[in-house]
Amino acid sequence: MDLLTLLSNLSDGMIVSIQIFALTLVLSLPLGLIVALGRMSKNPILRNLVKVYISFMRGTPLMLQLMVVYFGPYYMFGLIMPRGYRFYAVIIGFALNYAAYFAEIYRGGIESMPVGQYEAAKILGYSKVQTFFRIIMPQVIRRIIPSITNEVITLVKDTSLAYVISVTEMFTVARAVASAQANMMPYVAAGVFYYVFNFVVATVMEKIENKLSYYR
């Protein structure tokens, strides 16, 4: 198999990998903020529920969580899910898992903000919501970008875990081709794909970081 055929075989898988990556980010970044707010809630029931959630999400393998999301509805409730559910199960599993990690990053950032910023905002008449979105969050985002970058890079590589429920992302295709052809090249191509993907991610994140570092 020449390189071009190999790449065209892999390209469908690449698109799926990129879809998993993008959808996970779009869902888990906002969801993580909501989880973080729950984690910091004054209501002890909500706070502890969220704490347990985060603990499970971080304490068990993502691979296992994907299986639970995919097989759970049938095994637990006898629900037969529609054909396309496989892909949605991946997105749900990833989003729930990454939201837990992002939540803790948000929390760290929010709790690192000096109380003086809240007090100044209060004296100036900002509402709680205004204070959070105008004063606190812009500074929090700037502080947490390096940690977010770490997670995003991990996410690129984690997309390969979708193979456990047979979603044909790039790595699934590479494995299939490699074993059919008894050839190393698909793995090399897969490695290059992940590396280039992450190189782009790291570059973009660095750009964002630089854009936000106009102040100290």
């Binding site: 000096p114 003086g116 007090e119 100044a120 004296i123 008449g125 812009p138 500074q139 102040y215 100290r216």
Partner: peptide, 16 residues
């Protein structure tokens, strides 16, 4: 709150 203002010891300006 609109009746008063407060100047803090450590300014508490918004850095961003």
């Amino acid at each position: 709150r609109s009746y008063f203002g407060l100047v803090f010891q450590d300014f508490n300006l918004f850095p961003h």
